[in-house]
Nucleic acid binder design. Structure first.
Length: 200
DNA sequence: GAGATGATTAGCT
DNA sequence: GCTAATCATCTCC
């Protein structure tokens, strides 16, 4: 079943990031369904988090999506090449989001392989935020779309990850955020081969 | 209107 | 390990 609006509309973005591990993320792009379960996430905590786009209450055309009511997608371009997929959480006016960094694909692997232009299936196929967006056909066109839609959604299939199998470590690629770069806002399932490289 | 840069990745050494 | 690729967005003038 799809995760309800109430799951996203909480303020504890760190707890939500932790709980998203083991949930299933799916997209239906042009009638083609692809997806898998989430193995790595990162929390971005509103206006007080120096690593977040919303730090210092910077409300701009791009970050406007993060300020909207939780339960929608925030997709943006980074380094001019990679699209990143985030889940917006908490209430309207509270700019918090969870970056999905890696999934383990379970549905439509052949389609994912085609989108990624890979000759063989390797862990790198859905490892890293830029890779996931490409693998699932996520683009800026669906920025702001509801996670209750039939295009993009997250399901709870009852998978439970015990605490001892979850690692909480500093985030990746945010060294410029100084002391906030040290916060343990990155979560992943220990030992999963799809978890991205740093800290593995 | 111009200049700097990033929540990265793949490919080569 | 190192670096090129590549552009939307933000910041100041």
């Amino acid at each position: 079943m799809k995760l309800p609006e109430s799951f996203y509309q909480r303020n504890d973005v760190v707890a939500i990031s932790r709980e998203l591990l083991g949930k299933y993320l799916f997209t239906d792009i042009d009638g083609v369904i692809t997806g898998g379960y989430i193995v790595e996430t990162e929390a971005y905590n509103g206006i007080v988090d120096k690593a977040a786009h919303s730090y210092g209450d910077r409300l701009t055309p791009r970050t406007r999506t993060m300020y909207m009511l939780g339960g929608i997608a925030y997709v943006y371009l980074c380094y001019g090449i990679h699209e990143m997929f985030n889940v917006v959480v908490s209430g309207e006016g509270e700019p918090r989001a969870v970056l999905i960094r890696a999934i383990q694909p379970t549905v439509g692997v052949d389609i994912i392989q085609f989108r990624r232009k890979m000759k063989e299936v390797k862990p790198t196929i859905t490892m890293g935020p830029g890779s996931i967006a490409q693998a699932l056909g996520i683009s800026r066109k669906i920025n702001g779309i509801s996670l209750q839609s039939d295009t993009l959604w997250i399901e709870d299939r009852g998978m439970v990850i015990p605490d001892e199998n979850i690692a909480a470590v500093p985030r990746v690629g945010v060294a410029y955020a100084k002391e906030d770069a040290l916060l343990p806002y990155r979560f992943y399932i220990k030992g999963n081969i799809y978890v991205s490289k740093p800290n593995k």
